[in-house]
Design a protein around this nucleic acid. Structure first.
Length: 278
DNA sequence: ATGACCCGCTCAGCGGGA
């Protein structure tokens, strides 16, 4: 089973590229972030024609997470229990929850598509929101792992954190900025302490997953590694291979992020039954 | 080559991205 995660930066703008890539790369399950649309606006038809079902959580033009799968879905979960809200208080005094987390189970593997809050600036309210969101995710993950110690689990997505200095092209440029601060890195480490491992880095895969559209960042290879697949021990044990598909940053109208892909040692019924169109 | 921001929303400028 081939699984991937990709911040697509608007699925309506990118649907052609994304669906072409799914077929070309023989991907079974894709976690998407920043779909930037509601369910009513989502381009389901293009995915269906390529053989993929879609589950999504999208509230408006901001954020939004989704899955495409050609192996079906079980146990779809919108958001996680301890996720904080952000913004203007609602009538009941609570803060609105954003569309940043979607969980599904495919072929017995538990998968999450996550779009971690950006944080904006260290003195912006979005920054403590980011840290609280990550702390809630770690706490819910700890609870879930205690209840499901044998089920493969992966948290996949745009974590908006560069865990190491070499995950950005010039750490000097990031002094005093988000994505590299110690509290953010500690929040990332708490996910690892909960029992998850970066299954891609562990296999020696190098390179960035994001390059800003501005200032020739991609041609100069001035990027950031902020998109990850964090797997539990049972998930890690299934991983055969991992890669970052840097080629998807090239060509016409790319996303500013590229896909991160893992192959799992997991035979699925659908793979045996799938007709060969070629 | 991979090339000098892009998205959605609303229509010119803005919030957000990182």
């Amino acid at each position: 089973m081939r699984v991937a995660t990709w911040n697509v930066n608007s699925i309506r703008t990118r649907v052609g590229r994304v669906v072409d890539w799914l077929g070309r790369e023989d991907v079974d399950v894709l976690a998407m972030q920043e779909i930037k649309c509601t369910e009513a606006q989502f381009p389901f038809d293009a995915f269906a024609e390529a053989g993929y079902e879609v589950e999504l959580h999208g509230l408006n033009q901001w954020n939004g997470v989704a899955f495409a799968s050609r192996l079906g879905f079980e146990d779809v979960t919108v958001g996680f229990d301890r996720a904080p809200g952000f913004g203007k208080a609602l009538d009941d005094g609570s803060l609105p929850k954003e569309a940043r987390a979607l969980g599904v189970t495919v072929a017995g593997v538990r998968l999450w598509s996550l779009y971690v809050p950006n944080g904006r600036e260290l003195d912006n309210p979005h920054y403590p929101y980011k840290l609280e969101w990550l702390a809630g995710l770690a706490a819910d993950t700890r609870d879930w792992l205690a209840e499901h110690p044998d089920t493969p689990l992966a948290l996949m997505g745009d974590f908006n954190i560069a865990p190491f200095d070499h995950d950005v092209w010039d750490i000097g440029v990031f002094a005093g900025k988000t994505h590299v601060s110690q509290p953010e890195r500690d929040a990332f480490a708490a996910l690892e302490a909960a029992g998850l491992v970066d299954v891609v880095r562990k296999r020696g895969v190098e390179g960035y997953t994001y390059w800003d559209y501005q200032q020739l960042r991609f041609p100069r290879n001035e990027g950031m590694r902020i998109d990850f697949i964090l797997g539990s021990k049972p998930f890690d044990d299934l991983v055969l291979e991992a890669r970052i598909d840097r080629n998807e940053r090239k060509g016409d109208a790319p996303s500013d992020h590229v896909p991160v892909v893992v192959d799992l040692d997991l035979e699925t019924e659908d793979e045996d039954d799938r007709p060969m169109f070629l």
